[in-house]
C-alpha cells in the first residue's frame, strides 16, 4: 500500500511539530492501533496465565494436563477419530474471512464500492460461520457427553446439566444419602478453555457487529460521499487483530 507513510520526509520535519502526524496516519487509525496494543496485552496476560497453570501441572505422573489432540477429536456427522481437524477448519474460516477483509480494504483504496460490499459481506458471513462453529465446539468437546473432558466439579448448579454424565450415590456433609455427579478430568483446563475462547469469541461477535454496521454504511454510500473508505480499513484492523489472536490461541491452547 502506498499512502502517506511511504513519502520520504526527514525526521526533523516529521517530529518538528505543526499540524502533521509524526506517524503519517490519521487520528482514528492511530487510536485503533492504541486500542489493539492494549487489547493484545490483555490476551497476552491470559495466555501467559494459561502457561503458568500448565507448567505448574507439568508432571504426567501426578497430574494430567491434556493436549488439544486428546480433547478436540470429533467432527460433526461422523464418529471418526479426527484430532484437531475441526479447530483447524475454524482457523481456516477465520483466516479466509481475514483475507476477504483485506480485499475489501484494497477495493476501498480504488473507490470500488461494489467490490467493497462484496468482500465485506463475505467477511460478515465468515465471522458468523466461525461463531456458529464455536457453539458446536463449546457444547461438544468439553461439556458434551461425547467430549473427553467433563467440566462438572462438585457443583450442584452444574450437575443438572442436560448433557448426561454419571450419577453415583454418596453421602453429603449432613449425613444424608444423595446422588452425586462423578467428576473426572482437570477442571482448570476447562476453565481456561471457556475463558480464553469465550473472550476471543466475544471479540469476534463485536467484530461481526462492527463489520455489519460498516457494511451498511458502505451500501448507503456514506464512505463514497466522504471520498475515502478509511472506516473499512479501521474495522479491518480490528478484524485482523481478532484473527491474529486466534493464531496464538490456536497454538497455545490447541496445539501445545
Amino acid at each position: 500500500m502506498a499512502g502517506a507513510a511511504s513519502k520520504e520526509i526527514d525526521s526533523a520535519t516529521l517530529w518538528g511539530g505543526g499540524y502533521t502526524s509524526p506517524f503519517s496516519v490519521s487520528y482514528g487509525k492511530l487510536m485503533m492501533w492504541f486500542f489493539l496494543v492494549s487489547d493484545g496485552l490483555t490476551f497476552g496476560g491470559l495466555l501467559s496465565a494459561l502457561g503458568f497453570a500448565k507448567f505448574a501441572n507439568v508432571n504426567d505422573a501426578t497430574s494430567h494436563w491434556p493436549t488439544g489432540e486428546e480433547v478436540f477429536t470429533h467432527l460433526p456427522g461422523t464418529h471418526a477419530h479426527a484430532p484437531l481437524i475441526y479447530v483447524a477448519l475454524m482457523t481456516f474460516i477465520l483466516i479466509i474471512s481475514s483475507v476477504t477483509m483485506v480485499l475489501a480494504v484494497e477495493a476501498g483504496h480504488r473507490m470500488d464500492k461494489k467490490a467493497v460490499i462484496k468482500w465485506m459481506a463475505w467477511t460478515v458471513v465468515g465471522g458468523l460461520i466461525f461463531l456458529g462453529s464455536q457453539v458446536w465446539e463449546w457444547s461438544t468437546f468439553i461439556a458434551g457427553y461425547d467430549g473427553d473432558i467433563s467440566t462438572w466439579a462438585d457443583n450442584g448448579t452444574l450437575s443438572h446439566s442436560p448433557y448426561g454424565g454419571q450419577w453415583v450415590m454418596g453421602v453429603d456433609a449432613h449425613g444424608h444419602e444423595v446422588k452425586q455427579m462423578v467428576t473426572y478430568g482437570p477442571t482448570l483446563y476447562a476453565n481456561f478453555f471457556f475463558f480464553i475462547t469465550g473472550f476471543h469469541g466475544f471479540h469476534v461477535f463485536t467484530g461481526v457487529l462492527f463489520n455489519f454496521l460498516v457494511l451498511r454504511n458502505v451500501i448507503r454510500g456514506v464512505y463514497h460521499k466522504r471520498g475515502h473508505y478509511e472506516m473499512v480499513e479501521k474495522v479491518g484492523l480490528y478484524w485482523h487483530f481478532v484473527d491474529l489472536v486466534w493464531v496464538f490461541v490456536f497454538t497455545f491452547f490447541y496445539l501445545v
Binding site: P22, V25, M101, V247, F248
Partner: peptide, 24 residues
Amino acid sequence: ILTVLKAAYIILVFMHLGDERKAL
C-alpha cells in the same frame, strides 16, 4: 516459530504495518 511466522505476515501484510512509518 510457525506461530510467530503467521503472526508476522498477518501484522505486516494484512494490517499494513509493514507499510507504516518505522516509528509507529
